[in-house]
Nucleic acid binder design. Sequence first.
DNA 1: GTAGGGTTAG
Length: 736
Amino acid sequence: MATSCTPAINLPRLSHHQKPVSATVNIDRSLLLQLDQCSDFSQLKQIHARMLRIGLFDDPYSASKLIQAAALSHFSSIEYAQKVFDRIPHPNLYSWNALIRSYASSQEPINALLIFIKMLCESDELPNKFTYPFLIKASALLSALPVGKGLHGMVLKSEFGSDLFVLNSLIHFYAECGCFDMAYRVFLSMQKRDVVSWNSMIMGFAQGGYTEESLDLFRRMEGENVKPNDVTMIGVLSACAKKLDLELGRSMHLYIRRNGIKETLILNNAILDMYTKCGSREDAKRLFDEMEEKDIISWTTIIVGYTRAGDFNAARSVFRTMPYQDIAAWNALISAYVQNGNPKEALATFNELQLRKKAKPDAVTLVCALSACAQLGAMDLGGWIHVYIKKHGIKLNCHLTTALIDMYSKGGALEKALEVFHSVESRDVFVWSAMIAGYAMHGCGRDAIDLFLKMQEAKVRPNSVTFTNLLSACSHSGLVDSGRDFFNQMEPVFGVVPGIKHYACLVDILGRAGNLEEAVDVIENMPISPGASVWGALLGACKLHGRVDIAERACSNLLELEPQNDGAYVLLSNIYAKSGRWDKVSELRKLMRNYGLKKEPGCSSIEVNGNVYEFLVGDNAHPLSKNIYLKLDEIASRLKSIGYVPMKSQLLQLVEEEDVQEQALNLHSEKLAIAFGLISTSPSQPIRIVKNLRVCDDCHAVAKLISKLYNREILLRDCYRFHHFKEGSCSCMDYW
DNA sequence: GTAGGGTTAG
């Protein structure tokens, strides 16, 4: 009989042939024993070769042992395991499980699921109680909710519907996917729960921000006589840290000591983290000094603790003394600088990182660096980082995409921001929101609204930030009706409850357009108490429309909330000045002096050849100061020759300057920066300037004229929006 | 003969 051409029939017979092989007991056992004891990769390869020679490989049991060693030992290589696996004629379930398990904890957990599908298609094996936890773990790592749900369904139809391990992995899976109700439902449905069930649920709740539920569960667990262990306490501490409850955290620390819970490195790190998050630098330091074993996480955590306490010197010195600065430690420093509004120091540290070449910047580093560039408007450097990302093949995740869009938008290159936006496949709510913000700050209100509509087509749910950006887009473009409509839709249509920021935007939209009565009406009917930003928006509108009556009320409310708000005094003083009430102006000045308040000095920065230069009012610290002032004189005389009259009333913005000089207007920081830009950049380049305050009327008018007289584009970002000066006019259409 | 839960940086 010619059986050779019908392997499908031959295959089952092979297993019969294997019997004699496994009957060679002596060689068999010793080799398998060696496999168990094998401690490195080369030994493994030798055993593999011997197994091939004696045909042991055809025995599924022996083969499974080899797979286990190849896939799961400490020297394992998943590629090798896969190759071995592919040569096994009939892998048994144990082998499938070993391979699936190995992939489930690999870099590409998706392969665990693919191998599972292969198993279902190509073998007669069915998943058992060991298979499911691996598959569910892979789904959790992938946050693949539909996959996990499908597996859950299979589990329920199988005989493992009440298996403790399977259900525990489901709790973890649902929590990981953010389905806390499902996780809890599985938890409640269990007939028997062990410490892992409780731990998974406690950690799930803690990470989902349900701190009360988490802590409640911890108390109930004791009532049900399940003894908490070190992992339990990590979850509980995470909840304390999220709650910022130092006292509770301390009591948990005590609980750990009293109950003899094993103080593992990870647990100590969690306690350390709790202390730093709850703001107790002292407790953190004490524990840190006590810890016998420390790892990179301990060091990073204490650095973060010091930066949160504002002690950058201490953070730096810990950083210097730690045994090895990995990228997370660098990131901790850099991100702390970024978040504390010190982008220059952030970039200096980023620079240092690259010079030392000890650690490689990762996506987080680049997000931080880009955010620093965005704050500074340092587009050259930001663009360089973009090139770096491309060159190193770093994939754009949503964080990076958002950071790039933000950097380009704030640097004035809206087109580049759009390029990035369109180039990526996945866009989460932050990516969309950042792009809407980009349109908003450039005064493209219509485009922002269009994008918002496209976002809905893409089925991405807007959040509170999205609406802040959308409303500010309406404000910058004077889209009063759209703004009002969107605001009214927020809660009923999108389920986003308007917060202070949204009310401030609405007041700004209405007030800016001159509907001051309606704006006041909105404030009076707010369900939450109007914060400083709301009164500030109203005050700003009063300045624009010269409404002294409402301004006084807005200002006094604002100062009640923020007595130190120098901007409020300045604005009100401007309003008085505009209506000629000099008595009130000097009264305000006196008041400010009595309170020891000073107007925040104007500061403009400009990036030239990758360096960021800052100018303060009347600054002459720059090496080219002399040339800058010569240029300013030249500008002044050219402006005069075409009949420009400086807006002297704007001088009143400089409240703190008692002895205002004749040239004071000319010394505004943005003018210095523009003059410097004119002499130090090539005529084809636009001049990009970032100012910390709002641009004044005179500087705005002068910039328009310079853009025409010198045929130069000027991109000026003030603390509020972009002004794109070109051929004598500004993109804001003088509406700002 | 195999398993499940954990801390840091945006």
